[in-house]
Design a protein around this nucleic acid. Sequence first.
DNA 1: GCACTAATTGCAACTAGTCGCAATACGAGA
DNA 2: TCTCGTATTGCGACTAGTTGCAATTAGTGC
Lengths: 171, 171
Amino acid sequence: MSASGSRRLGVPPTPGAAWDRSGAWASIPERLREQGLRWTPQRRLLVEVLAQTDGHVTGGELVERCREADTTTIPSTVYRTLDVLEELGLIRHCHGVDGREEFHVLPETEHGHAYCNECGRSWDVEVEEVGAMLASFQERRGFEVDLSHLTVAGRCRDCRGAGGTGEAAVE
Amino acid sequence: MSASGSRRLGVPPTPGAAWDRSGAWASIPERLREQGLRWTPQRRLLVEVLAQTDGHVTGGELVERCREADTTTIPSTVYRTLDVLEELGLIRHCHGVDGREEFHVLPETEHGHAYCNECGRSWDVEVEEVGAMLASFQERRGFEVDLSHLTVAGRCRDCRGAGGTGEAAVE
DNA sequence: GCACTAATTGCAACTAGTCGCAATACGAGA
DNA sequence: TCTCGTATTGCGACTAGTTGCAATTAGTGC
Ligand SMILES: [Mn+2]
Ligand SMILES: [Mn+2]
Ligand SMILES: [Zn+2]
Ligand SMILES: [Zn+2]
């Protein structure tokens, strides 16, 4: 179902990346206060949850995990905090094939995503793979593409090979 | 607000395209019945509304326009009919920057979209502009990209030139 | 430590859309 | 034209998330 969001959760980051991450999380209180924003228990909880998260999560999944630690968690607070953290650059979001937001937690490299409409699997799309497009948008349109937000939908090799119907369609 | 969806509504199609279109709409009842599906008043109304639509519309806008002609229009019926028509290939959808579905009505050529996060405007992305990416996905991943579903977000020339804040952010 | 102010929270109402199901009504065939 | 099976509709409940607002509280200055 919405497996594609949590599919890669728990996959360990490449060695070394974990180091950078904890540093980034640690400095959040100060970064908020620098901007006149506040460090609250609700925000701390969400940041703790995010710090334990690799890959992609939906807002709903984050609400749920916060609730595991604190049953009084309020969805709107979580969603508003996600907005704040994205403005701070600590997370990015893209949209799954169904249009729902999925958050990237401190991605090691900026990347987009490819989703198979048929089997629902997803893959990271690194910058080299779409470099020509980014450059062309830059040059021909003066348009600066947000790679993190890029979602490419289609049919994967397996599903095409399987003669048309690989598995249940995702959307 | 959700102006980006209706922005280009009413722009006339290139001459000649209107001809192909009416033909496509006219054959819908038969195409439905061929598949054991049915031609109902509710479906006829939506098809009439779509036939008068150019460019991009959200489901909500379509519900509203159907309601103008028939106040008893039920949203779920409209959304379900949109699914059916998309399976028939008469419409395609992509997702705006906020992830909401936008429908393309009988596009003259298959194309994707670029959205500016800052001013909210959008542009069609023709196949030549992303041909290299489509080819690379095909060759390197065996992945067949759905161009109609492609949404490229970023900042347009005007908004970048305007020193960072062009207008109100869209999302 | 106390007071003050604005950021943030909790909450409830609201939006956009989806889903299950019983009632309706296409449309193929007699 | 009538019958019948099933596709479709209407409807209400539900999901995921957003918004406005009054109450709370972080954090600054005293
Ligand atoms: Mn989609
Ligand atoms: Mn977005
Ligand atoms: Zn697949
Ligand atoms: Zn712009």
